[in-house]
């Protein structure tokens, strides 16, 4: 299809071209427009659970990571109302877990923290839940700190579809939902997980981390210290598209 016949939709008043089958999210990112997101990693199937990427399509809210782009539709994303909701959602993720940024090895590389910065989350809205969750440090190379888990499901999806190991699953429900590890003891050390697994490399927060790598880059010089997640995500998305297109 030649570029001039490309279909487009409106995003915050801007014309966004898209390919057939592309989601609103992908089309926006390809056009250089950042939509805040946490559970979605464009390398993997979308999950639409964090709800940060909610946009208003022709007056109705949808998660942009799973919403197909349609020619001519009117999409709103960068509005004060939606950004306020995104701040509240981010704050919800922060209070339901135990996120000690000052003591977290992931600080500066953490997408939750970086997204909160991007949204300008300066105030605290909600009471802290202070849940008691288990840390699994049994494995020689990998640590699972459930305190920091935001239940994005990326490790489940990647371990199943890429690593073909299905090391992770979720149990419980509602606010008691938690990650379980597939091993007789329920511990990582007894599981099939290994340091080569993709699943342990894409945790957006510090829930799944490699041991021994945490402070290779000093705080203050880390990924989102250097470049805000809004720019970083778009850049990464473009690099991926280029790699795909050869």
């Amino acid at each position: 299809m030649s570029p001039d016949t490309k279909k487009t939709f409106q995003l915050d008043g801007k014309e966004i071209p898209f390919r057939e089958g592309q989601t609103v999210f992908d089309a926006a990112m390809a056009a250089g427009v950042y939509i805040p997101h946490l559970c979605h990693n464009p390398d993997f199937e979308p999950h639409s659970s964090c709800r940060l990427c909610t946009v208003i399509v022709n007056g109705r809210p949808f998660a942009s990571c799973t919403q197909p782009a349609v020619a001519g539709q009117d999409v709103r994303s960068d509005t004060p109302e939606l950004n306020e909701m995104r701040r509240a959602l981010t704050d919800m993720l922060l209070v339901e877990g135990n996120h000690y940024c000052p003591a977290c090895e992931k600080s500066g590389n953490c997408r939750l923290q970086a997204t909160a910065y991007a949204l300008g989350l300066q105030d605290s809205h909600f009471p802290q839940f202070f849940p008691r969750r288990d840390v699994d440090a049994s494995h020689p190379d990998i640590i699972l700190d459930r305190d920091r888990c935001i239940l994005c499901g990326l490790c489940l999806r990647i371990s199943r579809s890429v690593d073909k190991k299905s090391v992770f699953a979720m149990t419980g429900r509602g606010i008691t939902t938690t990650i379980v590890v597939d091993s007789p003891s329920g511990l990582l050390a007894d599981s099939k997980v290994s340091r080569e697994d993709e699943a342990v490399r894409h945790c957006p927060v510090g829930a799944l981390m490699m041991k021994g790598e945490a402070y290779m880059v000093p705080i203050g010089q880390r990924r989102y210290d250097v470049s805000p997640i809004s720019e970083d995500s778009v850049r990464e998305f473009h690099a991926r598209e280029e790699a795909h297109n050869g």
Binding site: L94, N98, H99, Y100, C101, P102, A103, S124, Q128, F130, R132
Partner: peptide
């Protein structure tokens, strides 16, 4: 004005909440 992580979230001292 609530100043610093401990004031905002409980911070490091709140690790005892476990």
């Amino acid at each position: 004005v609530s100043v610093g992580e401990c004031a905002l979230t409980g911070g490091i001292p709140s690790m005892r909440n476990h």
